[in-house]
Amino acid sequence: MNSDFEPDDYSDFAEPRVLTIPAECAGQRLDAALACLLVDYSRSRLTTWIKDGLVLVDGKPGSPKDKLWGGETVSVDIQPNPDEVAFQPEAMDLDVLHEDETIIIINKPPGLVVHPGSGNWSGTLLNGLLHAYPELKSVPRAGIVHRLDKDTSGLMVVARTLAAQNLLVQQLQARSVKRHYFAIVQGEVRRDGKVDAPIGRHPKDRIKMAVVGTGKPAVTHYRVLEHLSGHTLVECRLETGRTHQIRVHMAHIGHPLAADPVYGGRPKLQEPEVNMALEDFARQALHAKKLSLVHPASGKTMTWKSPLPQDFDILLNVLRSAAGLDDDWDEDDWDDEDDGDTEVIYVRE
C-alpha cells in the first residue's frame, strides 16, 4: 500500500481512454489486443473490465472473445488499482458493539459495502475501519475475515491483529463460528430443514451465484419461526460461507428472500399494504442476528445478538398484521440454544 497516494492521484480515471484499433491488431481477440495496446494493465485486469461492461467497441459493450478487424473505436473505462486507491482511510460512523485489543464486533447497516471492488472503490467498511483503527493497515484486508452482502445487515467480526485473524479464519474453516440470520422468505415454509447444495458462479449470468455441480460445498440449516402473510420468517444457520449462500439456497428450494432484487423472481401479488411495504424495503430481507465465536485471546466462547434494524422490523410487523397475528411476539424467543458457559452480549437500540 502506498501511504503517499492522494485522491487527486486517480483523477485520470474520470474519463474513459479512447483507442482506435490499429491494422496490426486485425484478427486478434479484444482482450489480447487491449493487452498489447494498454501495457500498463494486466490482461486479467483488462478482461475483468470487459466483462464488467467497462469496454465499448464502436459504442457497444464488448466481449473478451470479440474478434477485431482494425479501425474500431474502443472506449476503456480505466478503473483505479485497488492496491493504491481502495485501501485508503475514510471517516465514517461505525456501529461498534464491542472492541478489545484483539477483535472488533461491527453491526453493519444495510447499504454498506464491506470490501472495495468494481464500482465500489471507496466508502466501504474497510475504508472506515482503516480510519478508526490505523493499525489495521498491517493486517490483510484490514482484519476482515468474513463478509456480508451490501444490503444484508447485522453482525460481523474484525480481527485487530494478524494472529487473531489467523485464529478466526481457522474457526471459520472448522465451522466453529456460529452465524445465525433472520430471513423473511416468500411462501409458506412448512417445516425445518437443511440445504446441502454446492454453490458456484452462475453459468450464464456472472453477477449471480447458483447451485451448480461444479460449485463449492455449501450447507445452510433453516428453522421456521413464524408464518406470515404470504411469507415465512425463518432462522438460517450457516455451516459454510459462500457468496450469497442463504439467498441462493432459499431460492433453490422455492422460497427466495422477500424483496431480493437478484434472486427473488416475481413474487405473488399480496394485499396492497404488503406490496407497498415490500417496495419500500428495497433490499433482500436478511439480517445477521447472532454471532458466536471463541475469543482469540481469552479462549472463551462469546456470543453477540443484535436487534432487528428498523426497516426489517417494519416489514415484519406489516406481514404479521396482514396475517392477523397479535403483536406480543418477542424476537428473542426464537433462540432456544443452551448457551452454557458462553458470555452472551445482547445489543439493544
Score class of each variant (00 low, 15 high):
E72I: 00
T73I: 00
T73N: 02
V76P: 02
V76L: 01
I78K: 10
I78W: 04
Q79H: 06
P80A: 12
P80E: 10
N81D: 15
D83H: 02
D83K: 15
F87C: 04
F87A: 08
P89G: 05
E90V: 01
A91D: 12
L94D: 11
L94E: 05
D95H: 03
V96S: 10
E101P: 00
T102I: 07
N107A: 07
K108W: 04
P109R: 07
P110W: 03
P110K: 06
L112S: 05
V113E: 03
V113I: 12
G117M: 07
G123K: 06
G123F: 06
G128I: 05
Y133F: 15
Y133N: 08
R141Q: 15
G143V: 14
I144R: 00
H146A: 04
D149L: 04
K150A: 02
D151A: 00
T152E: 01
G154C: 03
L155S: 07
V157T: 09
V158S: 00
L162R: 14
A164M: 13
A164P: 00
N166E: 15
V169E: 14
Q170Y: 10
Q171L: 09
Q173E: 14
A174H: 13
H180I: 08
H180F: 12
F182W: 13
F182D: 00
A183C: 10
Q186V: 04
G187V: 09
V189T: 02
D192Y: 05
G193C: 08
K194D: 12
V195M: 12
